[in-house]
Amino acid sequence: MTGNRFVTQALGEYTLAGLANCSAEIVKTARPVNLNLFSIKWPVTALVSIAHRISGVLLFLAMPLLLYLFELSLSSEAGFRRAGAMLASPMPRLVGWLLAVALLYHLIAGCRHLLMDMGFGETWRGGKAGARTVIAISVLGAILAGILLW
């Protein structure tokens, strides 16, 4: 719902004015088939949406790493200690924090999706409020995860 509105708004602001000068025939053939995402405004709902995708792809790529850690930590007492010790050095700890934040964000933004499927926050205002809530909770969670890790 908000996605459609986003596209309509973007079209309204940046292309329809220009198209108004064209003849109907040109409009038919030279219709914009692709929006340049870097030239249009990003409402908070669009930011939350793209971040949901980026965090999802990041977690997807991290699956082998996470499985490796599960395998190592469950293999033996020594493996469990080694997995724990990995988080002690700065770079792996940063990666761990990033993945924890990605997972947390993906979970919270996903819960917003489920709530919207049930009809909550589907309006433009509700969508924006929900998106801001997702960001607020995620920032708090990221800080908390940082405190726990460092």
Binding site: P64, L67, F70
Partner: peptide, 20 residues
Amino acid sequence: ACLLLTLSCLIWGARIFWGN
């Protein structure tokens, strides 16, 4: 490539969580 990674993780994960 993504499908191969997904299937590999599925089988690897099954080994980790099932064989324990």
